[in-house]
Simulated assay, not measured.
Amino acid sequence: MSNREQNSENKQRALRSPWILGIIGMIIIFVTANIVMITLSLDRPGLVDDNYYDRGQHYEKNMLKRQAKVREMGWQTKVEEPEYADIGKPATYGFRVTDKAGKPVEADSVTFYVYRPSDQDQDFSLPMKQVEPGYYKADVTFPLLGVWDILVSVRQGEFELNVPSQISAGVK
């Protein structure tokens, strides 16, 4: 057997080794996973605000001012969620807001924001209608199954208070 034939036979034997096959398999899995992750990240938008720099300016100072104002106002809030929110069917959400003394607050506007954590294109908002002093309602229809972040925003003059919540639509 010539030297060339021995080298060829050794190469073929090496390619049949479980160690070499394992290493090649791991490299293929690694490259495939990275291609999938890159493709998914390009397809789905994140929840980054378009004006992130402007909103972040003096964030801590503004947040401390807002927290002090909330304590000063003493508003008490409650989001009333339905027991179950089905897909494509309206679900009624209520929102109650009172002052320090427990009297209803008549806000200038109350807005119900709905955010889809996995898809910014599905985000929407609705104005809440005043049913009685300090009590607001909105009929919300979720288009997709899954988790939704909710934010009720109350405005009175320059003051704004945001109340967050979360719902799993279509899941009992």
Results as ranks from 00 to 15, higher is better:
Ser8Met: 09
Pro104Ala: 08
Lys78Pro: 02
Asp139Phe: 00
Gln67Arg: 13
Glu9Leu: 05
Phe159Lys: 04
Gln57Lys: 13
Trp75His: 05
Asp149Thr: 00
Glu80Tyr: 03
Lys65Ser: 11
Asp121Glu: 08
Glu83Phe: 10
Ile29Thr: 12
Asn3Val: 01
Ala33Asn: 14
Glu132Met: 06
Lys69Asp: 06
Glu81Asp: 13
Glu5Ile: 09
Tyr93Arg: 02
Asp49Gln: 11
Ile167Tyr: 10
Tyr115Ser: 13
Gly94Leu: 14
Asn162Tyr: 07
Ile87Arg: 12
Ser109Leu: 11
Pro127Lys: 09
Lys78Cys: 03
Met73Leu: 13
Ala14Lys: 10
Arg116Phe: 08
Gly56Asp: 07
Met73Ser: 02
Gln166Arg: 10
Val147Thr: 09
Met1Ser: 05
Ile87Met: 11
Pro133Leu: 03
Glu72Asp: 09
Ile27Val: 12
Glu83Ser: 14
Asp123Met: 05
Ala85Gln: 12
Lys65Cys: 05
His58Asp: 15
Lys78Gln: 13
Asn10Phe: 01
Phe112Thr: 04
Tyr52Glu: 07
Ser109His: 06
Gln67Thr: 10
Gly157Thr: 04
Val131Ser: 15
Gly25Thr: 14
Glu106His: 12
Asp119Lys: 12
Thr77Phe: 02
Trp19Thr: 09
Ile23Ala: 13
Tyr59Lys: 05
Gln57Phe: 04
Ala91Asn: 13
Met37Phe: 07
Met37Tyr: 07
Glu83Arg: 08
Ile24Lys: 06
Pro143Phe: 00
Lys103Gln: 15
Leu47Gln: 15
Gly134Thr: 04
Val154Phe: 00
Arg16Pro: 01
Pro143Met: 00
Val163Gln: 06
Ala91His: 12
Ile29Pro: 03
Ile23Gln: 06
Asp149Gln: 01
Tyr52Leu: 11
Lys172Gly: 07
Arg155Gly: 14
Ile150Cys: 02
Ser125His: 11
Lys65His: 08
Trp148Lys: 08
Ala91Ser: 15
Val147Glu: 09
Ala14Leu: 12
Leu126Lys: 13
Asp54Ala: 15
Ser153His: 00
Val163Gly: 08
Val140Glu: 01
Pro133Ser: 09
Glu5Ser: 10
Ile35Asp: 04
Gly146Leu: 04
Phe95Gly: 02
